[in-house]
Nucleic acid binder design. Structure first.
Lengths: 258, 258
DNA sequence: CGCATAGTTGACAGCACTCAAATGAGGTGG
DNA sequence: CCACCTCATTTGAGTGCTGTCAACTATGCG
């Protein structure tokens, strides 16, 4: 299960600049994510403020757990490279994918009120995360009260995004859901200045299906359908959005503009 | 469209104490909701702090709009009696029910970051709302910085609830969704010390269907199915949960415990 | 009392789920 | 480096649930 990941984070596309996430960067200045790190929005866009709070960078092997539901929260995390899924496991052991977290995403911010992690966090591939101990964060909030307003804003966006997607999509057919999912991923990559036309899906069909409330066979069929219509090109986890306009058309009946 | 509502807020049940929401209460001390008002959690549970912030109580007729998407936000609201639906309307004029707001619920808190309302708010029945002007709220936050942490907590709960419901429910069958919806309503009423075994649905079948991603005929059929199995009793908008255990059993495959 | 709207019920078709098998890719050990 | 094994993914066939269209009933309002 654990092993070196032989894949690049993403297939090259619009940003042909080698590996965008070199390992072992201990400072924020050198971090490839830079201003795209959601921590900077969390901290009011001022990376200078951020540095003293970020304590260490942790490496995760594929399949490794960053935290477990119920566990006392010691830190808020930011994905630096790789991707992580948040899952809920019910009494019967069934899994529910809550969220896929990409580079730049803040993890477990919403757990800080309760003080315990609400979900399980698993690395979908080898990953690096930044760690902001809750103590350091609280200290920072104490020094700069406006910071909590930034955190508030991050949460508001999250509420809004959840509502938009899940509300409209619940009535959509399978292909539509899949198309929306892919476009959503692409937009998130683009916002982070990562390749967004061709990239590698870090999650498997089962994860996608679970997240969208479908069966994995249905997801696979939807991929095939979208490909036959020339909207995408898929080979396993390698994905290319061949016709973004067409894709948006496909989901425009259910999703608002980007 | 606009007219006096001849229905009581709720059918009597466990709390046979007359109309629980007398009209025209201008002070928080006399408000029937009292500590169950989510504003009190918003304000750290201290109603004393709340009073100077709450400016006026506004009456809404059934069908009346409290605010419109895009409109500049002047206040955060709390439902005092009646109920309000939050809806999104897309380019093609199609409606999407985002949320049903019951007495005690805070409205538009998550809009305050953007400064504009994100959705339309319509009264499902005659209603009263409390109004907290954003100026007053900001002033209060300035005086008591911890207050923003309370607001943060409110949002976190919202994120969490949304995830639980929509995530698990997206894969459930129609009857399951409807059962979960009814139980969810019931629990929210109970938490507010309102009749929760027998109550009146303030929204119509179309609203429920829209919210759950179903067709109204399917919702109707699900009601019938649940009734034939002795789990509920429905006559139009009058609802009774005849077998809460059975209902929970029905949704237990998809929803975590209360 | 009659109209308008809300809600229920029925018939039928289509899409997604289920079960099953085949294909392909990735990883391991010789 | 190749063979093999395992698991992810795709594809197929059949069934059931839900959407669609339509008719009917009940309720509320003037």
């Amino acid at each position: 299960m654990v092993g070196r990941c032989r894949y690049r984070q993403n297939v090259e596309d619009s940003a042909p600049s080698g590996d965008p996430h070199p390992i072992r960067l201990d400072s924020c200045e050198l971090c490839g994510i830079g201003q795209l790190c959601l921590t900077s929005s969390l901290l009011g866009g001022d990376l200078e403020e951020l540095k003293p709070a970020v304590r260490n960078h942790r490496r995760l092997d594929r399949g490794e757990r960053l935290f477990v539901a119920g566990q006392r929260q010691r830190a808020v995390f930011v994905v630096r490279s790789g991707s992580i899924k948040l899952i809920d496991i019910d009494r019967d052991g069934r899994e529910q994918v809550i969220e896929f977290c990409l580079p730049g995403d803040v993890l477990a911010l919403e757990d800080s009120v309760v003080g315990r992690h609400q979900y399980h966090a698993l690395a979908l591939e080898d990953a690096w995360v930044c760690t902001i101990p809750v103590n350091a964060l609280n200290q920072l909030v104490f020094e700069k009260p406006q910071l909590s307003r930034q955190a508030f804003a991050v949460l508001c966006r999250k509420v809004h995004e959840q509502r938009q997607l899940q509300g409209r999509l619940s009535a959509a057919d399978a292909t539509c859901k899949v198309a929306a999912f892919l476009l959503g991923l692409s937009r998130r990559y683009r916002r982070r200045r990562l390749p967004h036309r061709r990239f590698r899906l870090s999650m498997d069909r089962a994860d996608i299906a679970n997240h969208l409330g479908l069966q994995l066979e249905t997801v696979s069929r939807s991929f095939t359908a979208l490909q036959q219509r020339g909207l995408i090109s898929v080979h396993g986890k390698a994905l290319e959005l061949a016709d973004e306009e067409g894709l948006e058309q496909e989901v425009s009946d259910y999703l608002p503009a980007a």
